[in-house]
């Protein structure tokens, strides 16, 4: 994927807005978790993972701790309910931090919250891996149109969209540039 923009699309968040949103979310997480002691940030591949790393870096800076043990990846492919509607998806890596997730406060991190089905799959996947004390959800963009009773605990930006539009998140780590655009299908 390239950073090239599609005609007819508009950028809604640029690099500074994304950075500010993540710093704010990091602080909100710390505030509600009362520190980073039993905190685990699980990024959902592909773009949830760099977001989780960025949040961990900020939290590490603020708390003066190593951010590495805070972060893990949670691939939800094998828990999705829409596998049969698409060509076969490649299974991503799941890796939990060494401290595990049992009795931890797990914050799931993803780029866009839409129908809620990915998060439903993530919660099923999590249940097979251990038993966190609590599970929260952080997303960069909430674009609405939920199909399940799921809401985010931390939102970078609420973005009203129509179903006919696509929200394209690009991140420096995966796409070479930070941007959130709304594109007509």
């Amino acid at each position: 994927m390239t950073a090239a923009t599609t005609p007819g699309s508009r950028e809604v968040l640029g690099p500074p807005e994304i950075a500010r949103a993540l710093i704010r979310i990091a602080h909100e997480i710390l505030e509600r978790a009362r520190g980073a002691d039993d905190l685990v940030l699980l990024g959902i591949p592909t773009r949830g993972l760099p977001l989780a790393r960025r949040l961990a870096a900020t939290i590490g800076q603020v708390e003066g701790v190593d951010p590495e043990p805070l972060v893990g990846a949670l691939d939800v492919t094998m828990y999705r309910d829409d596998l049969r509607r698409h060509p076969t998806r490649t299974i991503g890596a799941t890796s939990l931090p060494d401290r595990g997730i049992d009795d931890k406060l797990v914050v799931l991190v993803d780029d866009v919250l839409f129908s809620g089905r990915t998060i439903r799959a993530a919660m099923d996947a999590l249940a097979d891996l251990g038993r966190p004390r609590a599970v929260q959800l952080a997303v960069l963009v909430d674009r609405g149109h939920r199909e399940l009773p799921i809401r985010a605990d931390y939102v970078g930006k609420n973005l009203p969209t129509s179903r006919e539009e696509t929200v394209a998140v690009r991140l420096a780590e995966t796409d070479g540039v930070d941007s959130v655009r709304i594109e007509a299908r």
Partner: peptide, 23 residues
């Protein structure tokens, strides 16, 4: 290579306490 990589992810799930996946 893709099959072997997928198998590697499958193998990881097989060292977990809950080995069954709903896939």
């Amino acid at each position: 290579v893709h099959i072997l990589d997928t198998a590697a992810e499958m193998a990881k799930t097989q060292s977990r306490e809950i080995k069954k996946l709903p896939t």
